[in-house]
Amino acid sequence: MKEKLIEFKNVSFAYEADGEAVPETKDALKGVNLDIYKGEFLAVLGHNGSGKSTLAKLCNAIYEPTEGTVSVKGIIPDTEEKADEVRRIVGMVFQNPDNQIVATIVEDDVAFGPENLGIEPKEIRKRVDEALKSVNMYELRHREPHKLSGGQKQRVAIAGVIAMQTDCIVLDEPTAMLDPKGRDEVMQTIQRLNKELGITIVLITHFMDEAVQADRVAVMNSGRIVMQGSPREVFAQNEKLNECGLDLPQSTELCKRLGIKDTVLNASECVEKIISMLGGAV
């Protein structure tokens, strides 16, 4: 049996307008049940406002559920201490790369998390170097963050979480503000962390080609999880996805329209199917 890392039990979240000025919109959640297993790569899909970002922020105790519980390794973060404990297990990377880098030098920023945890200086140095190497940013460790590209900044942010040695990284639309090159860099990094270091990944996104790379996909719509399963299982239901304001990848869509029964996930699968369909008759 796979080990549960994060468990959402009947979680609802309602945004209370208590006059507090918060420069963001919080989307509601309604009765969400979701298990996130150790070592998996889960993609949470949904259009803007579907509640996917709220789900992310519940994972490491930034928000508190109005109903139900979110537990991380069995810890329910109902006190500040426990919330801190949860944040040592689940790290977070946000959308805007500019607004999460704290220090004026790349390596100092990566050290920020471990420093907060009160780790020995020598150990921090080791972790920082390793983290920077694992995101391919070691050569640029002395740079100033504002001189980096978006993709590079995002990798620095990821390194900052890795250096804290969390079990899980939640990435809230990490590629939404990047160009195609930056997106590729970040996606490759995420893949590598999951496969090589065994870090649990929760990727919040609305890009279907990113979700294809995950082990498991959960689709959200108006605060609920409406579909769950492997990318192949989920992408088979194109009408339902369209209802959720999402698109199929072009190769999947093409095969669907051609009446090919199996769901394909990438271009090479698609080419193969088409060729076998034409029966080599051409």
């Binding site: 072009q250 190769s251 093409l254 271009a267 698609c270 088409i274 060729i275």
Partner: peptide, 10 residues
């Protein structure tokens, strides 16, 4: 676009 690549491979 992916679709263009598919046609190129075909």
């Amino acid at each position: 676009p992916e679709i263009t690549e598919i046609f190129a491979s075909l």
